[in-house]
Design a binder for these strands. Sequence first.
DNA 1: AGCATAAATAATAA
DNA 2: TTATTATTTATGCT
Lengths: 239, 239
Amino acid sequence: MANNGEISISTSHGPNSSHSMKRSPSSLSPNCTDNSTADLLIDSPNQPTINQTNSNVVDGINLDEIKDFAKAFKLRRLSLGLTQTQVGQALSVTEGPAYSQSAICSALASQMFAAAQLSTQQQAMFEKLDITPKSAQKIKPVLERWMKEAEDRYKSGQNHLTDFIGIEPSKKRKRRTSFTPQALELLNAHFERNTHPSGTEITGLAHQLGYEREVIRIWFCNKRQALKNTVRMMSKGMV
Amino acid sequence: MANNGEISISTSHGPNSSHSMKRSPSSLSPNCTDNSTADLLIDSPNQPTINQTNSNVVDGINLDEIKDFAKAFKLRRLSLGLTQTQVGQALSVTEGPAYSQSAICSALASQMFAAAQLSTQQQAMFEKLDITPKSAQKIKPVLERWMKEAEDRYKSGQNHLTDFIGIEPSKKRKRRTSFTPQALELLNAHFERNTHPSGTEITGLAHQLGYEREVIRIWFCNKRQALKNTVRMMSKGMV
DNA sequence: AGCATAAATAATAA
DNA sequence: TTATTATTTATGCT
């Protein structure tokens, strides 16, 4: 490895130009290395002729706004003497697993900022970068909040940063359970009768099948979701 | 998990999947079926005993028919070398902006198929969502139309598919990497200790061995798969 | 020319 | 929405 930098936007040709939209796994190279300075090149040198008009809106999200935020964020981060890595790690602690793992680093800052620089025409690239405009927007408040707190701590002299920095993300995702065909059969049967089983029912099923209650609960959630998707799609088609 | 899938067709054996990557030969013929018959046997394994005579009709709509359509649709899709994703993307272009792209994929065929299996008891659910089974029937033409156009383009040689599928034609498969014995030794050692290395570990291994992170990740996926297969076979006394 | 398995796609739990 | 499992495809090697 050792290749690529924080932002590998330009690697279009990459042999692993996977797919348009595969839910691409974490191909994000998390060189969350501490090259503190290596950073989001916000003033990207060869910025690809972003659309000059002030809009640059994708999916109803103003990318310019995000870009501006990115700049501000960088300044504040640097003024606190923090690396991207540190921010990422800290976030994984305060914000939970969502931002944990290797994805943090790249998704968190560099990718987001990079993404913010893309013109609408380049939206496709978002997918390659594993970040969608939506994600970018979603993460913004999180960063804002955290940074605010960090500054507060800094100002108050107590550098507690180290307390929540450098801890490993840990907190990993639960292992995906796999249901036996028999279990699925029973679950589906129940679902057909009642898509919203009561707590007692869920507990009963869980016990009966030997799965954790929570797992069963989630199964119903997902199942309902699937059904809803179906319906939505259908309604779409009939417009 | 056992069954399911978009539509589980019992693929006899013919590995001649004219598939993806290369726009292969002209023969659109879906190899698979010598017994052509558009209505390939839908072996619904554990279909909730819907009485055939009644043919699973809801609001005067034959759900079995929809199910059949779903199946045929998959065949045609595959014969064009399209992925679910691609169809979904294309549809979202022609039919309007729309679904979270990830949902499209699954919603497209499999869910529809699943929906077709819904029993009458679930009709209530549909209504609650302001949609009736009738809607199910309405999406059919949309898919049919689109698929027809796609096929026409395909036949006429002009591969305009790429025009409304936002992807470039080529997209070649990544070159199969080969691991050095040394690398394999290390990987296997790790695997023995932990079949589910964390993201950090994967990154570490990748770096240490000089392979792409993604490659290492996949290796573990496949390895787990292999292990599972082995176990399964052993339990059947086949090994 | 077949096999082992890396890579890609589909399904689905979290 | 993301990450992992399940299934399929096809390549590199013998």
